[in-house]
């Protein structure tokens, strides 16, 4: 008699695993990483290696000590480490980068239950942790080593003084010849990554588009200056955060309208911090705050199943 196998659904599977998705994200981050190394020099590469290395190591050790199943193979720690690194300055002291990576992985991710159970994006929280701890060495941005710039302030710091004088030209901003963190300067590299992720179906295009669009429209409303608003779109960590950090599966709403509300909220808070707050950069804080609100947004926009109870 042939053996009949009885099992429950699903019976058809795609080849989409966590590892495959994380690999796609790593590939999408590659242009940004390369651009960062070219613009800021070999120091950027060291920061990336230290962050990724310590992230993977901390998750490995944590799982070992607490006798959980080893999850390092799904590459999520590597992705967190790389995103964190691309948020930092190229000349940040390496021990501070390591501390931030360990904090991000162990406190924000592992202690809350590992991948899927974290309440906020580990890379964003790690970046904020480093920014608060080591404000002088990691705050602001490093100047590119490839070209000599006239002023030694990042574009956001210049715009905090409510002027467009002294800003690099828009093409320079797109190429990345300006001060800032490793991954945030080269707009073209980020857009390449965005295109790849949308093509592979890893992210939906709504979140980054609405995030960036909200920032543009709101800064237009507040400042009534078209040039300034355009510069705001290309300055700071907006493009990088919108594409790579505001699209994290775990910490953003699942539903489509939830994603749109999330993106709008991020844009709103970013603009408020940039224009009315004391920090020149608001993207990290806005993503963190909206992460915390995500469960409620999800509940609010949850689809009722067909024929289900109200």
């Amino acid at each position: 008699m042939n053996k009949l196998v009885v099992s429950s659904s699903p019976h058809i599977r795609t080849d989409s695993t966590t590892r495959r998705i994380m690999l796609d994200v790593l590939i999408a981050l590659l242009p940004t990483a390369v651009a960062g190394t070219v613009i800021f020099g070999i120091k950027a590469l060291w920061v990336m290696l230290v962050c990724v290395g310590f992230s993977v190591l901390s998750e490995f050790l944590f799982n070992l000590i607490t006798k959980h199943t080893q999850t390092v193979g799904d590459l999520s720690a590597a992705v967190t480490g790389l995103i964190l690194a691309l948020n930092l300055r190229a000349d940040a002291p390496l021990w501070q980068c390591a501390v931030g990576a360990v904090f991000a992985i162990i406190v924000v991710k592992c202690l809350f239950g590992g991948l899927g159970c974290n309440f906020a994006n580990p890379a964003v929280t790690g970046r904020i942790f480093i920014m608060i701890c080591f404000a002088t060495t990691v705050g602001g941005g490093m100047m590119p080593t490839v070209v000599d710039l006239a002023s030694s302030a990042t574009p956001l710091e210049i715009m905090k003084g409510d002027t467009v004088n002294g800003l690099p030209s828009l093409p320079d901003m797109m190429l990345g010849l300006r001060g800032g963190a490793i991954g945030e300067v080269c707009a073209i590299a980020i857009l390449l990554g965005f295109a790849y992720l949308v093509y592979r179906g890893v992210i939906h295009f709504e979140t980054p588009l609405i995030f960036i669009g909200t920032v543009f429209v709101l800064s237009l409303i507040i400042s009534s200056d078209l040039t300034l608003s355009l510069y705001h779109v290309f300055s700071g960590g907006l493009l990088f955060g919108a594409v790579f950090m505001a699209t994290d599966y775990v910490t953003t709403p699942i539903t489509r309208s939830g994603k749109m509300i999330f993106a709008f909220g991020c844009g709103l808070i970013t603009v408020l911090i940039r224009f009315f707050g004391t920090y020149p950069e608001g993207v990290s804080f806005s993503i963190l705050l909206m992460n915390i609100l995500s469960p409620y947004i999800e509940k609010w926009t949850a689809k009722k199943p067909l024929g289900g109870k109200k």
Binding site: D162, T163, N165, V217, L218, L220, I221, I222, S223, S224, D225, L226, S229
Partner: peptide
């Protein structure tokens, strides 16, 4: 050098878009 005050036009466009 002084920074010029800005006109209302871009702001209105922004509000309409929003």
């Amino acid at each position: 050098t002084v920074t010029e005050k800005r006109g209302p036009a871009p702001r209105i466009i922004g509000i309409v878009a929003l």
